[in-house]
């Protein structure tokens, strides 16, 4: 059994789950910047309050899983991303406690402070994750088994582009979740923002895709596409990925333009599909590197007895986790409404 490959897939799935789950949390957090009243803000946070903590746990699994399964990758990537990880953590701290604190503040200034901590904490955490992703794709300087680059290697025009794209993507996820969980004016608000974000996502995905192709000759070769020429023999096999993204974006636009759309979970699901397409695109570009373009997943992997032990745990626990997570989502399924029985 190729345990490193199995674990690479498992961690990739964990990170994907993090992105589509905490992505909507963070996106809604960022959207509260534009909430038009305190009631609307409460409604927006109420759509995520019961589930955000579980969602964020996938991030811990991403970090902890990387340490456990690919200690070398963890040991190289974390020092390389020291500053964006710090920014992300600080932002997540503020936003995490703000869920509770903004309800507990009695004076107007403190309430405004915690509302701001929630909104901007979400926004900044997202941007920091974008910088981490961008810096990761751009490649890491490694000497032997340690990071050998500078403190700001992660900062580049490319990583700025990725950070903006990720923010747009999370806002889209958040807006679609809000669309599903609310009605009336707030739903219209979410529809409006979903459309805006979708246009942004369309442009950003195109730009990031093109830029990624010119990051490293190996990526160019993998896709068979460069700025100037296309090798159809190679590209033909991969063409379904961008095509799928395009079709999903079109379908989502149609859905968001439909005033009587049923079922209302479709936009969220389509957004997940768009994310999946983009994610697969990255995976195709970077495979098999876990530290682009220096360390492969096999080089970084922990010993087989460590991976095997964890695989036993994962095979038992991951389905269990997914089942009870699904149960909790089902429990809180349906529209939130501060006036109806849920809170009153």
């Amino acid at each position: 059994m190729d345990l490193p490959l199995i674990w690479a897939v498992l961690i990739a799935v964990a990170v994907m789950l993090y992105v589509i789950l905490d992505g909507f949390d963070l996106g809604i957090g960022a959207l509260t910047v534009f909430a038009r009243s305190e009631t609307e803000r409460n409604l927006m946070t109420a759509t995520i309050e019961p589930v955000w903590d579980g969602n964020e746990t996938w991030l811990i699994l991403g970090g902890g899983g990387l340490f456990a399964a690919f200690p070398l990758a963890y040991a190289v990537l974390m020092p390389a991303m020291y500053i964006p990880v710090l920014i992300m953590l600080a932002a997540l701290i503020f936003r995490g406690v703000a869920f509770e604190f903004r309800h507990k503040a009695v004076r107007e200034p403190t309430r405004i402070f915690w509302n701001g901590a929630f909104a901007y904490g979400s926004l900044i955490a997202t941007v920091a994750q974008g910088f981490i992703l961008g810096g990761f794709i751009k490649g890491i300087t490694v000497d032997g088994r340690v990071f050998a680059g500078g403190a700001f290697d992660w900062l580049s025009p490319f990583s700025i582009l990725v950070a903006i794209s990720l923010l747009l993507g999370y806002v889209l996820l958040g807006a679609c979740w809000l669309f599903l969980k609310t009605g009336g004016e707030t739903q219209e608000f979410s529809r409006k923002w979903a459309k805006r974000a979708l246009i942004g996502v369309l442009v950003a995905m195109g730009a990031v895709s093109l830029a990624t192709l010119s990051i490293d000759p190996r990526v160019t070769e993998r896709w068979g596409v460069s700025m100037t020429s296309v090798d159809f023999g190679t590209f033909w096999y991969l063409v379904p990925i961008p095509t799928l993204a395009g079709v999903l974006i079109y379908m989502l636009w149609k859905d968001l333009s439909n005033r009587t759309l049923k079922p209302e979970w479709r936009p969220y699901l389509l957004t997940v599909g768009i994310f999946l397409a983009g994610y697969t695109g990255f995976a195709v570009s970077l495979f098999p590197y876990l530290v682009p373009f220096e360390i492969t997943l096999w080089d970084a992997a922990a010993r087989d007895n460590a991976l095997g032990l964890m695989l036993v745990g994962a095979v038992i626990m991951l389905p269990t986790i997914l089942i009870y997570t699904a149960y909790v989502y089902k429990l809180f399924w349906g529209k939130v409404n501060l006036e109806d029985g849920y809170h009153g």
Partner: peptide, 13 residues
């Protein structure tokens, strides 16, 4: 990592 990683991994799981 080969020793402590799985313990922390189990904590998460």
């Amino acid at each position: 990592g080969n020793v402590m990683g799985p313990l922390l991994g189990y904590e998460v799981l």
